[in-house]
Structures are given as C-alpha cells and as structure tokens.
Write a protein that binds this DNA or RNA. Structure first.
Lengths: 353, 353
DNA sequence: GTGAAAGCGCTAACAG
DNA sequence: CTGTTAGCGCTTTCAC
C-alpha cells in the first residue's frame, strides 16, 4: 500500500473521466434520473466504468444535497430492555428487514444515555434520520411524543398512544383475563410487565380490570404488582403475591411470566393446578417453558412491518393513518392455564402451538 | 429541491451572523478545535447564538468533510437470529450503550438481505460506517472475514476467528462438559446451538471433544446434533438424541437448552435425575427455567464493551491487539446438572425433584 | 443528450 | 485570535 490513503474510493468524477463523460451524466445514468434520456452507448460506458472502479456513491454527500439520509432511527426507551425483553429483539429483526427492503438504513438509539438523554433529538436535528420508530415509550416520554405534533415522521410500537389504543393491549389483555375467569378463577392476580408509566402497561391493566368488571369480580389492588421487563422482576413481583392466595395469574408478558412461574414452583405450588398462568406476547420460547405457556400471540414481525411501511409513507409526505392492526390477537392455549387438562385432555400435548 | 420537512434547521452561517462572527469561528468554538484559542467573550456570544437557534451541526456535511461518519456498523449474520437468540440482544444493548458513550452511532445491518446480500460492503464503500462489529459469523462468511485483510476496522463477536479462539469457546465448553463428566456421566450428548459452519459452534464442539478425550470417553457422533439458535431447534434436535440414552446433555446455548429440556420432560424423563443438563451463556432467564439451568456465564456486556473499545481504537488507527477476554468463564451451578442435589444441601428446592 | 457551474453545510488551511 | 477561501462528493438546473 503505497497510496497515502489506501482505501480511497472512486468518486463520480473518476468514473466520468474513465467513461469520457461529465459527472452529471454519470449521476443521471446511475440514478436513472427520470425525464433524462441517455444514449444507450453512453450509458453502457458509464456503467462499465463504474463497475470497473467499484464505484459506490458517497452516501454522506448524497444525503447532504438531497436532504434525506435514507435512514430511520430506532428508539428504545431504555437500552436495558434489550437485555431482558424477548419481544424487542423480534421487533428489531423485523424492523431491520423491512427497512432494508425499502432502502432505508437503521440507526439504533436509546433514550437513556446518561450523558445525552436526548440524543435522538440530535439525530433528527443533525438530519441523520428521516423518521423515527419508538419502542415501548412511557407516557412521560413527552419529548418523544411531542415530535408527533411537530409532524416529524414518528411511529410508536409496542405501545399505543391514543385512539388506536383499544385495538391492541386492552382488548387482548381482557381476553387473556377473561379466559382465566371463564375457567372459574376468582382470585386472578396480575403482574404488569413494566412500571405504570409505560403506555402498554396501562393498556393491559385496563384490559385486566375490564374483564374483572364484566365478570362481576371486584378489583383488588393487592393482587396487582409491577415488574420491570425481566424474568427476575417477575419472580420478585410474584413472591409477595403468593401470600394473597391467587388461583390464577395474568402476566404482562411472557418473560415476566417465566419469572413468576419460577416463584410459584419454588413455593411447591403446581402450575396450573394451584395457580393457572397466562402470559402475553408468545415469544418463541414460550412453548418450551415448563409447563408450556398459554399466552396472547402478538405478531411483532407483522407489527414491525406495518410500522415501517407507515413510517416511510409519512417520510415521503403521504399523510396516512395508522394501519389496521389485527383487532383481536389470538390466545394460544397451552398447558399453563389448565384449560386443556380440564378437557379430559392429553397428558402433555405437543407445544408447538 | 423539495424539503421533506418544513422546519428548516439553522446553519452555521446563521449562527455566525447572529453572533457577529465568521463561520470558522463558530466551528472552532463549537468543536473546541485544539490549538485554537478563542476570546472568552466571543465564545460566549457564539454559544448563545447557537443555543438560541437550536443549532445542531449537520452530521452529513460534517462527515463529508471530515471523512469519518462517526458511525459503526453492527452486522448480524442472519437477521432471524435476533428473533430467537437471547444472547444477541444483550450484545446489542451493550454495543449501543458503549458506542454512544464514545460518540459513535450504531447502524444495524444484516448479511441476509435477499436483495442485497452484501449491503454491508456498500455501507463501507459509501463511507457510512467507520468500522464494523460482526456478530456470530460463520466460517463461510469469507467476504466479511476478508475485510480483516484489507485492514478495515472489524471486530468479531460471539465467535473467535483465530488465535484468541482458545480463550473463549473451547475452554469454556470443555469446562461445562468436564463438569458433567466429573459428576460421573459417560454418555454426554451435545446439541450445538448453531450449524457447523458457525465459528462458535466449532469452538464449543472442540471443547466438548477435548473434555471427553481427557476423561477417556470415546467421542460418539451419534450423541451430537446441531440446532439452529432457537428453542424449537433445540427441542427438535433433542428428540432423536433421547433414543441414544444419554445421561447428560451439554447444550450449546441456553435457549437451545430450554428446548432440549422440554423434549426431555415431555418424554417423562426427569432433569437432572434422568438427564443432567448444562447450558452456555447464562441468559437472564436461565435462572428461572424449571429446573434452573446450570450454565457457563459469558458476559456479553463486558465483551461488547471490549469490542467497541477495540474497534474504536482500530478506527482511530491505533493498531491494537484484541483485548484479553476473560480466559476462564465461570460455570454457574444451578439445579439442572444435579451437582447441588448430590451435595444434599440445595438452597433452592428443586420443584421438579 | 450532454456538460458547465452552482451549491448542500461543514471544516481547515492560510492569511491578516 | 479571527475571517477568507477552498474544497469534501454529489445532484441538479441551465445552457449548448
């Protein structure tokens, strides 16, 4: 490597020179700029030159002039969630996939950078991202939500800001709770998957209370505890709850359910015989818990896909309404709720759901 | 040019005008350019003007001239892993955190974009990333590995390319297997967490064989199966293995262990009494499995931190050796291996016992 | 159809 | 110490 800057990339003018044309022609050919017709022979020369030099346009330069970065930000309200929540990774997977499919890159951001609590605002102001997808926002994340008013392209995921809220968390949480109620349980505990400030927590709690109300079962504050995403927090939240002698538990998500189940089993109680359990999310491991977990199946992949599509539409200026999310998420019945056993069922049916 | 968003951001010349100075002065003040001393009073005027206009430098423009994007790429060898592997999210968490701490953004990339199998190369060529951290590479990911030779800043994680290899996977897998062997097991099965092509799979398999060899137990191909990251794949891989009547299992990671355990329990066998199980990773939920999983504790947070630091050092041109990874990862003994029960003094009663 | 020229917003020599 | 002046690599009118 005798060149001073060994990895120097070819620039558009080098391509132009090699092809014997001007830079603008190169640009026209490579971008297939609409409304510009280029001679067949010229086009081929340009393409060949670009290939020969392994030319890739400098995205920074392009973004600078075009005004769009072709990048969307992914905001996780607390980075630590990535560590313990099995739901977010699924979102990430799908988010990345669909963003790429639409030609957008994905920038990972968090709100809890000690030094830079509002780094994502900088991303926006520094024009590095064209839009933002925010996961698991809390109701006190005013700054984020205020972006909506400023009409910056923003989509919330794993939480439902308004209106649409009913569709998702509330209805499904009600369904999960009702399932337990219909099995005859009257003392149904609830361990929320996150602190009260989280929008999704509020939704699910509302659904839980709604189901209780409909069944004529009084709401008992003593049967409700808040976890904090992790299995450990579910374990800790469940311990004091056991003293309240619930016969069933609706856990705010599957990971928390796993922790809660460990607390139950550790006390020598059986699932579902002593305490029936229903989770929420249907994470990929839920079918392999012992016992396999009955849970609400959310479809993070589909949800993420819709979110990306919605966001991109907003970025491109099409004022579009949120897409229809499946109004009614399915309840996947496995062994932890006791419904199967009751049906004079198989000892241990295949979990794959 | 059509601006996607109406809100125009302030530019450095506007700040300069408001402060009554030139653009370079603004640049010097805001960047605290070393070797340039600015009058106290001038500096304050500039800062005030910047604050008033909510000025944030355009990162694209800055990157264009500085030649660095202040962004690192995160390459996941197959996006689907994000969905099922509990280890990667932990990495992501830490990677994001430390990157931000060092002033770098994180771009999420995958190698399996159907349309763009080598999108990450474009990222590099288009100068959007200054360095790359690659997770879970396979040995056939030649293109990625070849970056090393081109001296592009690259750090591999969750796999060990060469030399250092011994430190991590091999030693720890040997330790896990040896633990089982020392408990008296002779038919120790192994379910690899990923297909053979994955570097980390090879490491762990090597460790497994090494332990066997040391104990004078012949290696039996029939006792080895390959899973594919998910609990489901572990479940599927374990089923045929049970017919081989192993008395112990070393699973390549905890998620796969969970699936394998489900297969064991489903057959009516007990853990650890009939089959003892040891996992690898110590994911946050491992302590809450039923029974709690004995496993090798990797420290993804620490590993990621080291990776980021190493990468940044390489980006900044300091030719640095890989940091010392903890040579010896701890084995966390819980209930699934039977070692505790044997000692007749388990702090935590085993519910399945 | 193609090329010349004008910036996008910023940094960094180099003068003054 | 501060301002002037070139670009970074690209897109995009506007003439030819």
């Amino acid at each position: 490597m005798k060149r001073p800057h060994p990895r120097r990339r070819a620039t558009s003018s080098e391509v132009a020179r090699l092809a014997g044309v001007s830079r603008s022609t190169v640009s026209f050919v490579l971008n297939q700029t609409p409304g510009i017709a280029i001679g067949q022979e010229t086009r081929e020369r340009v393409l060949a030159a670009a290939a020969e030099l392994e030319y890739v346009p400098n995205a920074l330069a392009r973004g600078l002039v075009s005004g769009e970065a072709k990048t969307i930000g992914l905001l996780v309200s607390r980075a630590a969630h990535l560590r313990v929540d099995a739901f977010i990774p699924q979102m990430l997977y799908s988010l990345a996939k669909y963003s790429h499919a639409y030609g957008y890159r994905v920038l990972l951001e968090t709100t809890d950078d000690a030094s830079q609590p509002e780094a994502y605002l900088k991303l926006i102001r520094s024009r590095q991202i064209d839009g933002l997808i925010a996961l698991n926002m809390r109701s006190d994340d005013r700054r984020v939500l205020s972006l909506l008013e400023r009409s910056f392209p923003l989509v919330l995921l794993g939480s439902t800001p308004k209106g649409q809220a009913e569709v998702d968390g509330v209805v499904s949480a009600r369904k999960a709770t009702r399932h337990l109620l219909q099995l005859g349980h009257r003392r149904v505990a609830h361990v929320a998957f996150a602190p009260e400030a989280y929008l999704a927590t509020q939704d699910r709690l509302r659904g839980y209370r709604l189901a209780l109300e409909e069944a004529g079962v009084p709401y008992d504050q003593a049967l409700v505890r808040y976890a904090d995403f992790s299995a450990e927090s579910g374990y800790l939240a469940m311990q004091p709850l056991i003293a309240e002698r619930p016969t069933a538990l609706f856990a705010g998500n599957d990971t928390v359910a796993l922790g809660a189940m460990a607390a139950i089993l550790e006390r020598g109680l059986r699932i579902p015989d002593d305490i029936a359990v229903v989770g929420y999310d249907d994470i990929p491991t839920a079918a392999y818990f012992a016992p396999p977990l009955t849970t609400i199946r959310t479809d993070p992949v589909e949800q993420a896909k819709l979110a990306v599509e919605l966001l991109i539409r907003r970025i491109q200026g099409a004022p579009s309404d949120p897409p229809e999310l499946p109004a009614d998420l399915p309840l996947i019945v496995r062994d932890s709720c006791g419904a199967k056993a009751r049906k004079a069922g198989a000892p241990r049916p295949d979990p794959s759901g």
